[in-house]
Nucleic acid binder design. Structure first.
Lengths: 191, 191
DNA sequence: ACTGTAGGCCAACAGGCGTTGACATAGAAA
DNA sequence: TTTCTATGTCAACGCCTGTTGGCCTACAGT
């Protein structure tokens, strides 16, 4: 069998430094403004190392934007607290990890990043929504609506930084937004 | 007095063509990928004309992203149909004019565009929300929440193009999203 | 008819970009 | 100790970008 967990290479620290710097820059500047040269400078190595390890800028972004929403099993959540659980989870998830901010910024202008974003929500979120079983015919629609509110929240809070949205405390946001998600997940239109 | 409505210059057609092409490109590609050369080519003029008429790329964008939400007077709307009115209005407004899409895409990566977006919603939306008078202390907060859902809808439908959100008919979207805005505008948290 | 000016094009600039290949070096393998 | 390979640096390439200034040309004012 091939060795799937090869022993640590000497270059692993460098690779990690590049990835960390890349995530920061992509999150702060978006895909096109985040230059390989700037990322390499942050990581204190030569730009050509980025090419050696990640092949191209696209390849670097693909590695840096690898992301798992880590959604909980919604089947194990009390059905009336689905919305609350989701908002809480998302707020925590991307407040501690700028990868999603990087993906979000890049998705606006980079077709590859947009595709990745579609996949992230089509696969992971739709799967989680399907996980609690009700109304299989509308799973995709419900997941899409949830995504619209969740991404809108992220967009206004972390990208555009609309003051009122930035200033609201997490608990306050949960109190307002949870019922929205709850209805998108379990309600009916115009309820 | 100075002539505030000077008679049409010969170049007005060119200026308009540039602006139209700029909006298209900014909407399709975002700020950095939309090049002056490409915009000029679309408008069938020389890139240097863009500079002559708009000074710089920033100046061109500022002119192309001039936008009025044209929000209705919410005081004249039946209080229980505020949400529906708003969603309908926004869907129509940006389905027929790509300026907002341009602004949205650009706001992700261009600080100036983000500032413009903040202003747009802080001024125009917050003003409209204040227009129906209830709960003046929370006007900004309510407007922010509305913006998060509205922009999230635009982001998923026109920028990332999440399939389920793209495929839903306007009426269907209204039926789902209107209650959300209605609650953000007139409800209380965790209602 | 003449002249001034506004409209438009062309060629070039300086700088930044992603990317490449040749070269040095240090540590593991022999 | 010698040899080889992984790690890293340096300098340059070709390309594209925003931007500039000089030069035609056609039209409006006289």
């Amino acid at each position: 069998m091939t060795d799937t967990a090869p022993r640590a290479r000497r270059s692993d620290a460098t690779r990690a430094a590049i990835l960390r710097a890349a995530r920061e820059r992509f999150a702060a500047d978006g895909y096109e403004r985040a230059t390989i040269r700037a990322i390499a400078a942050d990581a204190r190595i030569d730009p050509s190392m980025v090419m050696r390890y990640y092949g191209s800028k696209e390849g670097l972004f693909a590695a840096a934007a690898e992301f798992d929403l880590r959604l909980p099993d919604l089947g194990a959540v009390p059905p009336d607290r689905l919305g609350e659980t989701l908002v809480r989870h998302f707020l925590r998830r991307w407040e501690g990890d700028e990868t999603l901010a990087a993906l979000l910024r890049a998705a606006s202008t980079n077709p590859g990043a947009a595709e990745r974003m579609r996949r992230l929500f089509a696969d992971q979120l739709a799967a989680a929504v399907a996980g609690f079983g009700t109304d299989p015919a509308n799973t995709a629609r419900r997941a899409g609506l949830v995504a619209s509110q969740i991404l809108g929240l992220a967009f206004t809070r972390y990208i555009v930084r609309l003051p009122p949205v930035v200033e609201m405390a997490p608990d306050e946001l949960v109190a307002w937004v949870a019922p929205t998600l709850q209805r998108y997940l379990t309600g009916r239109p115009e309820s």
